[in-house]
Design a protein around this nucleic acid. Structure first.
Length: 397
RNA sequence: GGGUCGGUGCCCGAGUGGUCAAAGGGGAUGGGCUGUAAACCCAUUAGCGCAAGCUUACGUUGGUUCGACUCCAACCCGGCCCA
């Protein structure tokens, strides 16, 4: 039991509260029943990235201890738009989009979660929210005061910064709390940005005569830029469906300071091992990072693929050689101006950009740097065009 | 409903009749240095054109003017104060 608690606490920010969790675990073990671990999915974005896997991995730990993951697809709530962490209101989505997103999401989450029947339950909150009458909603809303709602950080901040908060956004936490009632959750997982919502769930459950759920919050994973939270819209993310080479390269690009965080949240390596790895006296940071990248990758790809990505990375970036795979571009043999050639190969988005790249010395053709965008090039079969460090094309006549 | 301030490029933000494709910062990208780390230095940052230049762009639509991001009108959107 001690062991279990210790494992479950790893990487968490807070557990509300620990004693209750211990009691629940003990109670469940005694009664031989599974705890129901709730996690709300936000079906507004179809792709999941490592930031999501932090919470999913915690969910997996519960599953491995025998408990049941209850995933709630917030198909109803998504139509409102969650104000969480946003400095602006989110757009509302159509049911079709939401369903499409949810499907992709589940397929990707399956890489982390145990999807066997007795370990996973998937629900849509339309199931109970759509039936709700206005009267029932009013009764639900009567459980919380305005002042309590305004405690929420994102509301507070937005008010302070003169960013609008719409009335309907108040309903979101209430509905999410009601989800907990509907699925009788024992534990709810979420990022720290969900703390408020999830704690509301506790209150709502109590108000409806249920034992309150334990709330476990996980840190928000910092994105590749090392500053902001990992998110798709900021483009600082590593997607679980990223190509092996991309995934490896992206991990390699994080700063040294972020390694410990990534090791703790994204791998299962023991704490002592991690301490050793992030100590630059004991391990060269680059090696530690390679190990980090491989370990993360093995959750999504096999070892061979991970090794191959590492080798490729070394080849292209450390040794400056050509990558294994270079996209072919069909082109006619007519002489063509260098800037036009880049455009034709889709290596740059515009002619202006092409000229800029050439002038800045980013362009090499068959490893020869060119400096004048107006240089005439006579395409030859197999000619290699390189822009910057990572964009390549091979000409095909 | 009344008053008042405001809506500028990816973001923030300066600009009050021509010298504005629009200062400055952030971000991003390229180069240098490196471990595709950080830090630092340099450069670039609307589209088209070899170029001269042309075309789009400062909430929307009209107007004044040789000329408008800058002036006027109406409208849309937001903040704040009052009710």
């Amino acid at each position: 039991m001690r062991e279990q608690l210790k494992l479950l606490k790893r990487g968490t920010v807070e557990v509300f509260n620990e004693q209750e969790l211990a009691d629940k675990l003990a109670g469940a073990a005694k009664a031989g029943r599974q705890l129901r671990i709730k996690l709300g999915l936000d079906p507004t974005s179809p792709d999941i990235h490592l930031g999501h896997t932090v919470v999913l991995r915690k969910m997996r730990q519960f599953q491995d201890l025998g408990h049941k993951a209850v995933l709630i697809i917030g198909d109803y709530t998504a139509r409102i738009g969650d104000p969480t962490g946003q400095n602006a209101t989110r757009p509302m989505l159509s049911p079709e989009q939401i369903e499409e997103n949810a499907k992709t999401y589940l397929a990707q989450a399956g890489k982390i979660l145990d999807t066997s029947q007795d370990k996973l339950e998937v629900r849509h909150n339309t199931e109970w929210l759509e039936k709700m009458t206005l009267m029932e909603l009013i009764q639900l809303a009567a459980k919380k005061t305005v002042a309590q709602m305004l405690q929420r950080d994102s509301f507070k901040q937005r008010l302070q910064n003169d960013i609008d908060v719409y009335t309907h956004e108040f309903i979101y936490p209430l509905m999410q709390g009601y989800d907990s009632v509907a699925v009788k959750s024992d534990v709810e997982l979420g990022g720290t940005d969900q703390t408020f919502n999830n704690l509301v769930g506790r209150d709502i459950q109590r108000a409806y005569g249920q034992p309150p759920q334990i709330v476990i919050t996980m840190p928000i994973l910092v994105g590749l830029d090392g500053k902001e939270k990992m998110s798709k819209s900021k483009g600082n993310y590593i997607g679980v469906t990223d190509e092996p080479n991309d995934m490896f390269g992206k991990v390699m690009s994080i700063s040294d300071e972020m390694m410990e965080n990534y090791f703790t949240l994204l791998t299962s390596l023991p704490a002592e091992k991690i301490t050793e790895l992030v100590n630059s006296e004991k391990t060269h940071p680059k090696e530690a990072k390679v190990l980090l990248a491989k370990t993360i990758m093995m959750q999504f790809y096999d070892e061979k693929t991970a090794d191959a990505a590492a080798a490729e990375f070394d080849k292209v970036f450390a040794k400056g050689q050509l990558p294994d795979e270079i996209p072919d571009v069909k082109i006619s043999a007519e002489p063509i101006m260098a800037s036009k050639l880049l455009l034709a190969c889709k290596l740059v988005p515009s002619g202006g950009e092409a000229k800029r790249m050439v002038k800045q010395g980013a362009v090499e053709i068959d490893k020869n740097k060119i400096n004048d965008p107006n240089t005439m090039i006579t395409p030859a079969d197999g000619m290699i065009i390189q822009v910057g460090k990572r964009k390549f094309a091979r000409l095909k006549l």
